[in-house]
Amino acid sequence: MQITIKYFGQLTEITHIEEESIAFSGTYIKELLETLYRKYNTLKTKDFQVAQNQELVSFETKLTGADIALLPPFAGG
């Protein structure tokens, strides 16, 4: 499955990109994160939530959407 991953805020300082598309064959969000941790070493140390198709989901959730976003703590207002 081809997945688009978006990065925001301070996470872009680790990834140096805001968006990428990767081919992924795992089942769960957490497996996708393991792949990303291998690619970006310090990502694991950061506080973030995951949105799947624009809804926050737990890391145990099954990957169903092609649209994943890693969101650091919110700072609106």
Partner: peptide, 26 residues
């Protein structure tokens, strides 16, 4: 206002006078 602060994915980079920065957290 409380719902906006808690639920909306907005990110804030606090820029200091010396142009260094840190990331704001609500």
């Amino acid at each position: 206002v409380e719902a906006i602060k808690a639920d909306v994915p907005v990110f804030g980079k606090e820029i200091f006078e010396d142009e260094s920065h840190q990331w704001k957290v609500n």
